[in-house]
């Protein structure tokens, strides 16, 4: 099903229930939200409120138990494994708390990874251009031959951001980007995200840090799987 909409991300009454042997846990209950193009949304809330679950569903890393999820007007709630993988590859960029760079690959190949998994075929020159541009954006071009273990935490996270934007996704999903960083590096990463947003990138960020949450244009507060507050900037 395809709906015409102005918002690239649209959740309609999405719920997630974890059904274990002894207990049924409602991680998310009837969440409806929209993220407009160029938005910078923060999702915050106490531990266990469903932030990570929501981000996983937004990133097609998990499926909702009920409800619908549209990306660029396409219903992606019930795609199979490869269908979801194709959407993740084309429309979503991930930034993880623990960077998730692959130790065996150097910076260049880590950043080029989404292009290698793309259904479009990129020539060597195209890959090089896109990766260089991306690394330039995060100011890490000079480190493209290095391996992750030769970089600081802040540098690793910048490389992770370069990987997330190399294929120009519809949305960047950012999970506690400063969680593993010292405050100086954390601030630098936040500045980088803001500048990307200023250049037009749509960002959805999960954080428990109120200061960084406040930096977003749209702030979403989750409580026990429900949206507690939706504050426009």
């Amino acid at each position: 099903m395809k709906v015409m909409h102005n918002y690239p991300i649209h959740l309609n009454k999405v719920s997630k229930v974890y059904d274990t042997k002894f207990v049924e846990t409602h991680a998310l209950t009837d969440i409806s939200l929209e993220i407009a193009k160029g938005d910078f949304m923060s999702i915050s809330g106490p531990s266990g409120c469903g932030k990570s679950t929501l981000l996983s569903i937004l990133g097609l890393l998990d499926r909702p138990t009920s409800g619908q999820y549209f990306i660029d007007g396409v219903d992606v709630s019930s795609l199979d494994y490869n269908g979801s993988a194709a959407i993740r590859n084309e429309k979503i960029g991930f930034v993880f708390q623990s960077f998730n760079l692959i130790d065996e690959l150097d910076v260049f190949d880590n950043v080029a990874l989404p292009l290698r998994y793309s259904s479009k075929s990129f020539s060597t020159n195209q890959v090089e251009d896109l990766v260089n541009t991306s690394l330039e954006t995060v100011d890490m071009l000079h480190r493209k031959q290095h391996f992750p273990n030769q970089l600081s935490g802040g540098q690793q996270q910048r490389v992770a951001i370069a990987r997330a934007i190399v294929h120009q996704p519809s949305i960047l999903l950012v999970d506690e980007p400063t969680g593993n960083l010292d405050s100086k590096s954390g601030d630098a990463v936040m500045e980088l995200l803001k500048s990307l947003n200023a250049k037009g990138a749509t960002i959805c960020m999960v954080t428990h840090d109120p200061e960084y949450a406040a930096a977003a244009k749209v702030k979403l507060k989750l409580q026990d799987g429900n949206i507690a507050r939706d504050i426009a900037a």
Partner: peptide, 11 residues
């Protein structure tokens, strides 16, 4: 690592 590759869109 495989989880990361999955997140990036590996089929």
């Amino acid at each position: 690592e495989l989880g990361t590759r999955m997140a990036i869109g590996a089929k």
